[in-house]
Design a protein around this nucleic acid. Structure first.
Lengths: 197, 197
DNA sequence: ATTCTCATGTAAGAAGTTACATGATTAA
DNA sequence: TTAATCATGTAACTTCTTACATGAGAAT
């Protein structure tokens, strides 16, 4: 489980409350890890029990008090241990991949509409990341290591959006070429032979 | 949940047993969805109860008997319904992203070694996908819709590997340029100001 | 007074992971 | 006869998701 460790990284960058972290997971951390506030509060509780973080209640002028968490020595040691550990690949889960592959067994036109919507979202998100990169990292060559890492992970988010745009564009193009619009659809292959794939 | 639907797609392509499906999820379906045999058997049981699939016991010459599953009309209807449904984005979970961002708080040299191993894996996997594409789809323009979809999802796996190779290469290059090897490391930013990121 | 947002949670259930179990057939 | 492999599962546990809950202050 890496949510604990994503939180440790974020808290080492700067101490934060549960709702601060929730906002970060909706923004920059969200390029590579998503989590809801429910998950975050539960894990924060467990991490405090385990002694990886400590809480300090901070009253605020015009708002309810916050519990601001900071990483303990034990938490730092755990983060260090985890980063050095060999990484096993994350499981792949692409709903759109499943739908693309199964399109013959459903309403292809509806799927293509959906894919166009997704393409639009990814295009907007790419623009946002490009804007953020230009605004916050105008000169990547002069960054110290910690800021360079933040920049390079933003670059990862950006490259990921480019991947989606490429894939969706290629799929849409292949299925909207006029010379193939009336090929047979919805073929039943239940008893077909296994192909060497 | 999309595992049910990934199984429906696979069974519509060709009827299969639990272990057949396990092999498919280790191979082509694995480009975009992973599942273990334990998950698959449990979900198959549920799908049979729900009437989406039916099982037929098939004795084999030199092996224990198989239970071969096929999709029912109800299963086809469900798959059709699900494909037309608007897709919500899959949650993003990149362990390597977390580690890259947190590298300053651990052993960067160990992480870079890990990343080189990952890069190697992705490079091999890209080669495999390129081989499969060339062998099984020498002429993509003449495919019918169902085969075109299989090809385009393989293309997606291929583009995904290219994404990983780009990201990892960029990260490794940025952190192995000799003119920045002795910048400060392991900066404590616990009390730093929030940046507009 | 009531509504709204903020900050913090709880509870129930679905899904996924890890470890172990069973019967059959085949190979040594 | 013992070990190995194949096909099919169970059980226990962890994690994630979805829906709901509470109290404090702010706005109307």
């Amino acid at each position: 489980m890496a949510l604990e460790h994503a939180i440790l990284v974020s808290l080492r960058e700067r101490a934060a409350s549960g709702s601060d972290l929730t906002r970060r997971f909706d923004a920059s951390i969200g390029y590579f890890w998503t989590a809801t506030h429910q998950q975050i509060y539960r894990v924060l509780g467990r991490m405090e029990v385990d002694g990886w973080i400590t809480a300090e209640v901070v009253p605020q002028a015009d708002r309810p008090a916050k519990k601001v968490y900071a990483v303990t020595d034990a938490g730092r040691a755990e983060l260090r241990r985890w980063i050095a550990e060999p990484t096993t690949p994350d499981p792949v889960r692409s709903t759109l991949g499943v739908k693309m592959r199964g399109a013959s067994y459903g309403d292809r036109a509806a799927l293509l509409d959906d894919l166009r919507t997704q393409l639009d979202e990814h295009t907007k998100r790419l623009s946002l990341y490009e804007f953020l990169a230009a605004r916050d990292f105008p000169d990547p060559d002069v960054l110290d290591d910690a800021d360079l890492d933040i920049y390079l992970v933003l670059r990862g988010g950006l490259l990921m959006e480019e991947f989606w745009i490429r894939w969706l564009t290629e799929y849409l193009a292949a299925h909207t070429r006029t010379d193939r619009t009336d090929r047979t659809d919805c073929t039943d292959r239940t008893h077909a032979k296994e192909l060497p794939r």
